[in-house]
Nucleic acid binder design. Structure first.
Length: 86
DNA sequence: CTAATGACCATTA
DNA sequence: ATAATGGCCATTA
């Protein structure tokens, strides 16, 4: 399948530990620079632990949302040495 | 096909 | 600082 969802997964998988990408960047990497909204939707529905969806943050530098709670997301990022705006 | 949803973005007040 | 507004797009029912 070469659906948008698949490309988003692939793009997120490429992000290494300690790095972060914005939803916009992921959308651009997926070939749809204006689909940041849909990217959030995809990651929200995604439950695959192989996909580091917690490394995807908002353009403002804030953590953004997370299925298990924004708290958990920030905690995870902090554990990788990444600081996000409160 | 339509309508609704949302882990967004940027601007404005 | 917060709140509201308009725009934007794939997925799902």
């Amino acid at each position: 399948m070469t659906s948008f969802t698949e490309r988003v997964y692939a793009a997120v998988k490429k992000v290494s530990a300690g790095q972060t990408r914005t939803y916009k960047e992921i959308a651009r990497a997926a070939g749809k620079p204006r689909a940041w909204r849909a990217v959030g939707n995809v990651l929200n529905k995604n439950r695959d632990a192989r996909i580091p969806c917690h490394r995807v943050i908002r353009s403002d530098g804030t953590a953004g949302g997370y299925a298990r709670g924004t708290r958990a997301k920030m905690k995870r990022l902090a554990a990788e040495g990444v600081y996000v705006k409160p």
